[in-house]
Simulated assay, not measured.
Amino acid sequence: MTLEILTSDLLGPVRHGFFTRRGGASSGVFAGLNCGMGSSDQSEIVTINRSRVADAMNVPLTHMAHPYQVHSADVLTITEPQNGTRPKADAVVTATPGLALAVLTADCQPVLFADTDAGVVGAAHAGWRGALDGVLEATLDAMEALGASRADTKAVIGPSISQAAYEVGPEFLDAFIANTPENSRFFAQGEGDRMHFDLPSYGLHRLRSAGIGAAEWTRHCTYADADRFYSYRRTTHAGEADYGRLISVIRL
């Protein structure tokens, strides 16, 4: 099966892609393009999947860098191939042509950034914790350190869990409104004390408040479309043992 790669006109001529699960070599609960080296999928199959992604981005696999994600606000600046090392962080930036930046997700937001005039790109993994702690703003800061201008930077949020599928408890709401009561607008009332959180809208809000030139969400829900996307929450609800990880990549 051919790889399915979602792109956005907002990122212009920069080569990028939000890869769906279609076109991979994995089977079973991982069926498709599972790129999660931390999953219990066969490591050699994951490597095949990652190689297909690198080929699609026209880079050697050794030149596709992604961090060991820990739901932080830490950002890595990449200037050369990582040779298999994966420092802990949740975003990566570069101004070096020929290097691809990747993040893995399965409900969290994959966010791809580009300042085409400055020749600087970035990629961030922004779950609720990372977004709340400032990983998106930290990515913009790191890009600026490489010569980018946030007013000229554009960002696209890829397939993420939608508000309709993201049910949370009162303690989750408390974490968001503790210092910023206005964040209550990203929550809708559910049954009983449950709420529904709008992660992509929150991500867009953080990006726009940080002064980015333009930002959008592709409007794909990972939970709702099992044929195209992996979802941690859907897997949990189904009682499955593990889940695949989607990959999103950008390069100069």
Score class of each variant (00 low, 15 high):
Tyr202Ile: 09
Val111Ser: 04
Gly169His: 14
Phe186His: 11
Asn34Met: 03
Gly158Ala: 06
Asp225Ile: 13
Ala145Cys: 07
Gly17Asn: 03
Met195Ala: 15
Gly36Trp: 07
Gly17Gln: 05
Ala226Lys: 13
Gly32Val: 00
Gly213Tyr: 07
Phe187Ile: 11
Leu3Gly: 02
Thr153Ile: 05
Ala124Asn: 05
Asn34Gly: 04
Ile157Gly: 05
Asp141Val: 11
Ile48Lys: 14
Thr96Ala: 04
Ile78Ser: 01
Gln42Val: 11
Cys221Ile: 06
Ala214Asn: 12
Leu6Val: 12
Asp193Tyr: 12
Leu3Trp: 03
Pro200Asp: 09
Thr94Pro: 03
Arg206Tyr: 09
Ser231Arg: 09
Asn58Ala: 10
Ala138Asn: 13
His196Arg: 15
Phe18Arg: 00
Pro81Phe: 06
Gly12Phe: 07
Leu99Trp: 01
Ile177Tyr: 12
Met195Leu: 15
Gly119His: 05
Phe229Lys: 09
Leu3Asp: 01
Val103Arg: 01
Ser162Arg: 13
Tyr202Met: 11
Asp198His: 13
Gly213Thr: 03
Ile45Tyr: 02
Arg50Ser: 03
Glu144Arg: 03
Leu136Lys: 07
Arg150Lys: 02
Glu144Val: 00
His16Met: 01
Ala114Asp: 03
Gly36Val: 03
Glu182Met: 12
Ala114Val: 09
Thr96Met: 04
Ala215Ser: 10
Met143Phe: 00
Ala238Arg: 14
Arg208Lys: 13
Pro159Thr: 04
Glu4Cys: 07
Gly130Val: 08
Ser201Ala: 15
Thr116Tyr: 03
Arg245Lys: 12
His196Pro: 13
Gln69Tyr: 10
Val168Pro: 14
Thr20Arg: 05
Thr153Asp: 01
Gly122Phe: 02
Ala89Glu: 05
Glu80Ile: 00
Ser43Lys: 15
Leu10Gln: 02
Thr153Gln: 05
Leu207Thr: 05
Tyr243Trp: 13
Asp133His: 14
Val156Met: 04
Asp227Asn: 12
His71Ala: 14
Ile157Pro: 06
His16Arg: 02
Asn179Leu: 13
Gly244Asn: 04
